[in-house]
Design a binder for these strands. Sequence first.
RNA 1: GCCGAAUUAGCUCAGCUGGUAGAGCAACCGCCUUGUAAGCGGUAGGUCAUCCGUUCGAGUCGGAUAUUCGGCACCA
Length: 672
Amino acid sequence: MTKLIKITLPDGSSRDVAPGTTPADIAADIGPGLAKAALAARIDGEVRDIMRPLETDAELALITSRDEDDALELARHDFAHVLAEAVQNLFPGTQITFGPATDHGFYYDFAPTKERGPFTDEDLPAIEEEMRRIIAADKPLVREVWQRDDLIQRWEQDGEAFKAEWAHELPDDEEITVYWSGEKDAPDAWMDMCKGPHLASTGKLDPKAFKLTRVSGAYWRGDQRNPQLSRIYGTGWLNRKQLNAHILRLEEAAKRDHRKLGQEMDLFHFQPEAQGSVFWHPHGFVIWRALEAYMRRAIDDAGYEEIKTPQLMDVHQWEQSGHWGKYSENMFAVPDEVPDAESEGPVIRGDAGMMAIKPMNCPAHVLVFRQGIKSYRDLPMRLFEHGCCHRNEPHGALHGLMRVRQFTQDDAHIFCREDQIVAEVRAFCELADRVYRDMGFEKYAIKLALRPEKRFGSDEDWDKAEEELRQAVIDAGMATEEYGWEELPGEGAFYAPKLEWHLTDAIGRTWQVGTIQSDRVLPARLEATYIGEDGERHQPVMLHRAIFGSYERFVGILIEHYAGKLPLWMAPVQAVVATIVSDADEYALEVAEELRRAGIRTQTDLRNEKINYKVREHSVAKIPNLLVIGKQEAEKRTVALRQLGEKQQQFVSLDEAVAMLKTDAIAPDLRD
RNA sequence: GCCGAAUUAGCUCAGCUGGUAGAGCAACCGCCUUGUAAGCGGUAGGUCAUCCGUUCGAGUCGGAUAUUCGGCACCA
């Protein structure tokens, strides 16, 4: 008689079953409802197939669609497999590679035949159709353990070069499994090498809960030197309701796209003659100026000194800082000569020296620091610059305001002694906190990016540098869950660890903006020193830091966060005075003048149009305050104030209206 | 930079298998003096991204270039 194994359930009860019993058997034993609902099982914490036999004592928890995260992960992984099977059915000769679940769905990377070429959007409907057929066929997904050599042989036989390559490299001690879609002897059986787990059969998927969304190129194993594969993306969910909700969220996100709003609100534009560089329009630049003025107050208050450094420096300087060697391919260089457009020869002879446009401000800041002899008493020295930088970003990387070739950083470098680092970083944490809250972000995460594999310096130095940053956040009381505190192994720069600030916007997306990192490499390379208490020369530590990151990108983030409905203090136009009848024109002009005198950015709309029309137009333009002036208002010297997003209007006196708007129009740091 | 797609009026878009461009909104003009999300009528506006090719004839077919979009790679 075989020895029974003991299976413990989440409620603490246990049952003894024969080895080889599956979680599905146990579910069926508990009840038919559960048997139907069970999708997979968590065995000692690991998600496994519902049909995979149990061999040893274990803790078992059945996974149903109510365990949403696990269930989604399983479903998406299965969708990816079904996608691969569908593609191979429709396009024989296509090689399969990988297909994982993603945050909202799944993708699968294929190597199409040469004749066929990459997949296009037009292929998607047919592939979706085939996927639905496979789901409807309810093919069982069966796990099978293979010997590596057999599997490699099988893949090679099938012309699956990528799979064969991968099988070669799987670690020796790892059990290699494949999953069959359909019984393995069935004529339409299909298989993929996969760790699993999977649902019991394709029919567990909801054919109305997925949608293929796009195609793209992707490099084999994520490396540019490798062949490019054809990737198909899909979004996948447990049911149609979830899919529809997701599609709705995408539509919402598209509505707040800063590129769309930037055009609608007449904030900025791009054009081919200056690709990747922003043409700021008057309204857009109002936002910029509000932020810039805010930031100047903030850094003045925090003990920084603002400087301005050259746009162009001799390439020699960039060689010394090390940037020319490492990053020259992303730098713009100009010859230091007068162009000759008149005569026959080349405009640029090319025999002069080179200058480079700054891609960052740090070397110039070190040069400012180096002027004169610095004493330990001069430290910390906090040099701030609204630094306009240029980086020659790859064409494919450009994206609205979010990734540009010319941008302005709120950049500062704090030169300090070793014993001042923790206090400086802590003060920065507090400054950043104030700024983000003033900008209207209620939630953000602070992350510590730790030493990468390839790095400069000894382990002791890294221990120290990491601990300094960690300690500063602890001292600020921000190394907590509330502040999203997290340490990211391997994510640091090659010369130092860094703290990163990730903002969460109104629809839950995150944006990395601020950063601070300690740097002992650049001060050494550029020979920055100060005279210590002991009369000797010492090397200061340089803290690179930014809060907005870049003005361009930060404005973009604000537009998306607020969906264009910016807080009053940064709104391009804060109020529009609109008339109902032309008899009110005179009073309307008076109202506008009053508002302007109170410092409120005001426009008038005296056009001969219906008030309905004017209300609609200014609402669409996201004007925060609309002051409507009719005959009554003109007589009683009042206004009808309609605020964006409010359904009700308020009838108030002119003085009251000015007072109301004035309060909100002040930047948050200037309010009492 | 790589893969795929797109580029038509200020904006959003239509234009089937080739026969010298069309709508709505905006603009301008006129009527209406209007009470809280589009009043009515009229006028004007386009080398169909650029260049080259195929063709009797190209917005439409082919190629190159530029930019944009979705990804990939990159992001000091």
